[in-house]
Design a protein around this nucleic acid. Structure first.
Lengths: 200, 200
DNA sequence: GTATGTGAATTTCTTCACAGCA
DNA sequence: TGCTGTGAAGAAATTCACATAC
């Protein structure tokens, strides 16, 4: 499942390069996997490949988007407009995939009322109420670790069911809320493991 | 292996809360895993637990840091000082884990020469030369997708062996270079999958 | 009683290898 | 010939269950 998103961006790339079709071999090479893996993965989505030809890029991309639920209109709020929150709010990739960033929140009165990416920054005290009003389904947490849990709870209260959490802390939430953690320090830590193993 | 970094930040958190010891059960609960998994993982690192008592937090944390190669002094350059690169350069978590951000690069002449986090932003044309001079081992790529491959190659030339790549594109590099991709759109895409499966 | 460390059992994931189609 | 789709084989990861230690 983790690989589907990778396939999708790979297919998009190939389409931009002008291809209409791709073999499992080619896709595997590009995403750093192998042909058998790709075929097995894609076979679960239905039959999009033609023997001797390959996979139909547009059809397959559509199908993966569908499986991932990437229809436009997912409403997302961003909490914590520090430098990371700011970067995320301005990030174009989100909009391109149909994510609609519809609310920004921060606890700093100096930021509240200011505009970013066409949206006014709202006080975090109003998070639960306002994000419910905004009908947000997803939330991005970019606040410091100590504030993250209470922000997450406010989001959950507001009916947000998916959270992308950049705070390096585990959120404790009701089961119906799905959380994905992106811990940048952990990413570097894992790289440093490879660094070590490469210099014996 | 992916989980070691998670254990580490969990252990740190517990230490800050004043504990000196933790059971596999407690750790598992906190990182969203189970006790057997934790014990199995930790058993590979040596024997840090005492039956009836639990694991010794400081000793175990030290051991995981060691295994991950988290000694202070990893020299990191950041390429692309857009809003994301800026956020990464300012991020304190990196320094706290001993990563030393020692060089910033951008292709925008308006940014070059300006200072950020105490460092002057250097022209990306000088990337290969300057990061070799800086003895950087790691690089963070936060440039737009079309520029990422050439930046990666310059880094590889300069002797960088680990790259954290935020550009939504697969980098094609010699095998000796390890790349970790962080694709924010993919993260949201996977959340959207759960969003879909939660609303049947 | 509580909790680790670990072989064995189980489950999950990946790769192989080949029939069948273009 | 080139390529997919897939059952079977193989590898890897996870969980169980229990002997052992505090």
């Amino acid at each position: 499942m983790e690989r589907l998103a990778a396939y999708l961006s790979c297919l998009r790339q190939m389409q931009e390069e002008g291809s209409h079709t791709a073999s499992s071999n080619e896709i595997g090479r590009r995403v750093g996997s192998n042909a058998a893996q790709v075929r097995k993965d894609l076979s679960y989505l239905g039959q999009f490949g033609r023997p001797g030809v390959g996979y139909d890029l547009p059809a397959l991309a559509r199908r993966i988007s569908e499986v991932l639920g990437l229809s436009p209109g997912h409403r997302v709020v961003v909490v914590g407009i520090g430098s990371l929150g700011r970067a995320l709010s301005l990030y174009h990739g989100f909009r391109r995939e149909g994510f609609d960033i519809c609310g920004l929140f921060d606890d700093d009165p100096a930021k509240q009322g200011r505009k970013l990416a066409g949206l006014e920054i709202l006080p975090v005290e109003d998070l639960a109420r306002r994000s419910a009003e905004l009908k947000a389904h997803m939330g991005i947490i970019a606040v410091p670790a100590p504030a993250a849990q209470s922000v997450a709870e406010a989001l959950a209260t507001a009916g947000v069911t998916c959270i992308l959490n950049f705070a390096p802390i585990r959120l404790d939430l009701p089961e119906r809320v799905v959380v994905r953690n992106v811990d940048l320090t952990q990413e570097l830590a894992m790289l440093s493991y490879y660094l070590k193993s490469r210099r014996p």
